[in-house]
Structure formats: structure tokens, C-alpha cells
């Protein structure tokens, strides 16, 4: 165990990354933040629409899209990868819907069938054409955020902005802009589909657009955090935000803050324990979630506990459950 967990050296873990290794640290932290922010913004809407597990499915199934794009074009170009991932995302959404609509299999099982099949195809393609596809199985699972900053890009203030970083930044900006522009449509169709229909918002256009944006975000996050950790990036920021606030703009602001904090804290954790950086960022994100879960001023466990202290004239303890189901 002592071998496993190194001694905590304050200078090495906290100070060094920002002094000696700043040029290496900054791109990683920035990348973690950008991935977390883009995923968190999209993920907030996924959570609202109860589609968190569709996010799970799409994050798995972009893999065959990427693999096929690699095989067809023999390159790691941005455009083929995006097209492959978009196609895979749409195919997944369609598959889930077809299985769910055409048979009596329920939606949860349909999700499970669709994404495991597609992911399996992706893994098989990668292991069959290992020499042609520049991806290995571990990278697929948890990414290689540490290598993101290595490629030569634009140098600003002594820090190298690699092409991947620039791409992720533009994706994040586009996502933020899209959410700003279509905020009303997203909001209305997420909370009240009937109202959305009556004011002329086409729910299925909103649905499929959201799925396309999700695929694009997932594929750009893929290289740095892999197929599974990206689920955490999608869900954790929004979930943490919604524990702290009930207002959607505030939830999204908190999600971005969560992305920034977990990125920085994750880097330090990874420096200390010498383990996967992306996974550490998720672990710290989960830590922040747990923190919000316990201490949230409006609905944290402690707050609930204090509030549920029995007062004589109050109805019995099973009321909160009823309230909850009424809200849900």
C-alpha cells in the first residue's frame, strides 16, 4: 500500500505543476476545463430531458464511427472523424427508437442493446486493423489527456496551444453559442413538450439536433477522456449544479465552474498519485458532487436532516417522498 500511494509532497504536488512544469500543465488543465464545460452544458439538458443514459449510449457508439472514418480515409483528419461520429450518433438514436417502437422491448433495454453492439463493432475493428487505426483499446476507455499538448500549434506567452486544444476550444464556444441562441427552444421543449408543440417548436428537430451536438462534443472529447469517462463529464457538472440551484442559467454556470474546479483538482490528484489524469479529474468531479450532495444549502443531506427533525404539528416523515414524486 505504501508503494501504491506515494507520500504527499506539498511542493511537488501543488507548487511544481504551476512553476517548473507550467507549460506542460496549463494545456492539460485547459483541455480538461474545455471538455468538462462543453460536456457539462450539453449534459445539463440531457439530465433535464432524462436522457442521461442516451448520452452514455452515444459516448460508446461514436467509437465505430471514428474507426470506420479512420479506415476509409486513412487519416486522423478532423472532418472525417466528426462525420463518422455524427453518423454513429444518429444511427444509435435511430436504433434505440426502432427497437423501442417496433417491438415491446422497453427503452432501457433498447439503449443497452444498441450501444453494446456498436461499441463491440468498434472494438473489433480497432483490434483487427490495429496497424491502421491509431487508437489503442486503453486509450478508447480513458483517453490520453496528457499527450494533448504535445503537438506543435500556436505558441502564445510561452504556452503551446496544440491543434487539439484549439479544436476543443472552438467546439466549446460553438456549443455555448448554440445554447445561447436556441436557449428558449431547448428550455421549453425540455420542461413542457406540450407547450413546445403548441408554440410551434418541432420536438423531434430539437431532439435530433441535441443528439448531433452531443455526438460532436463526445467525439472531440474522445481523444482526451475516452468513451466512458466522458459520461462522467456529461453528467457530473449538471448534476452537481442542479443540487445547488433550481434556476437553469445558474445550474449551467455552476456546471462550468464544476468543470474548471475538477480539472485543476484532478491534475493535482494525478500528480500526487501518478495515475490517469482524465480519471483523476472525474474522481475530483465526483468529490465535488458528493460535497454538494452533503452540504447543499437548499437540498443537501445535512439540510434535509435538520429540516426533517420532527415538529409536533408537522405531518409524518413520509411527506418528502410524496413531494419528490409530485415534482418528478
Amino acid at each position: 500500500m505504501t508503494q501504491l500511494i506515494p507520500a504527499f509532497d506539498f511542493h511537488q504536488v501543488i507548487v511544481a505543476p504551476w512553476s517548473q512544469d507550467a507549460a506542460g500543465t496549463f494545456p492539460i488543465v485547459l483541455m480538461g476545463f474545455l471538455v468538462g464545460a462543453a460536456c457539462g452544458l450539453v449534459g445539463t439538458f440531457l439530465i433535464l430531458r432524462r436522457m442521461a443514459l442516451v448520452g452514455d449510449a452515444i459516448s460508446h457508439s461514436v467509437l465505430p464511427g471514428i474507426a470506420i472514418a479512420f479506415l476509409l480515409t486513412n487519416s486522423r483528419g478532423t472532418l472525417p472523424m466528426f462525420i463518422g461520429a455524427l453518423a454513429a450518433g444518429i444511427v444509435t438514436t435511430l436504433l434505440i427508437e426502432i427497437i423501442h417502437r417496433k417491438t415491446r422491448v422497453k427503452q432501457d433495454a433498447a439503449i443497452g442493446i444498441a450501444f453494446t453492439s456498436l461499441f463491440a463493432v468498434g472494438v473489433i475493428l480497432i483490434s483487427l486493423y490495429a496497424s491502421k487505426i491509431d487508437l489503442d483499446q486503453e486509450c478508447v476507455l480513458y483517453g490520453e489527456i496528457g499527450f494533448i499538448g504535445l503537438e506543435e500549434g500556436i505558441t502564445l506567452g510561452g504556452i503551446n496551444f496544440s491543434p487539439q486544444l484549439i479544436r476543443m476550444a472552438s467546439v466549446t464556444l460553438v456549443v455555448a453559442a448554440l445554447i445561447l441562441i436556441f436557449y428558449k427552444e431547448l428550455l421549453v421543449s425540455s420542461f413542457d413538450p406540450a407547450l413546445a408543440f403548441s408554440v410551434g417548436i418541432n420536438a423531434s428537430v430539437v431532439h435530433y439536433s441535441l443528439m448531433c451536438v452531443l455526438s460532436a462534443v463526445v467525439v472531440s472529447a474522445f481523444e482526451s477522456v475516452g468513451a466512458i469517462l466522458v459520461i462522467a463529464m456529461l453528467i457530473l457538472p449538471g448534476a452537481t449544479g442542479s443540487l445547488l440551484s433550481q434556476r437553469l442559467p445558474r445550474v449551467m454556470g455552476l456546471a462550468v465552474l464544476h468543470a474548471a474546479m475538477s480539472s485543476v483538482m484532478g491534475l493535482h490528484l494525478a500528480t500526487w498519485l501518478d495515475c490517469s489524469i482524465a480519471a483523476s479529474m472525474v474522481v475530483m468531479g465526483a468529490f465535488l458532487f458528493a460535497f454538494a450532495w452533503i452540504f447543499s444549502p437548499s437540498q443537501g443531506i445535512i439540510q434535509r436532516f435538520i429540516r426533517s427533525k420532527p415538529k409536533l404539528d408537522e405531518p409524518p416523515a413520509d411527506l418528502p417522498a410524496a413531494e419528490k414524486s409530485a415534482v418528478g
Binding site: A52, L53, L229, I231, L236, A239, V282, V283
Partner: peptide
């Protein structure tokens, strides 16, 4: 999704 990804991480 939250538990899945967190435990996996």
C-alpha cells in the same frame, strides 16, 4: 450514469 462513470474513474 453518475455512479457508473465515477466508479469506473
Amino acid at each position: 450514469g453518475l455512479v457508473l462513470a465515477t466508479f469506473f474513474a
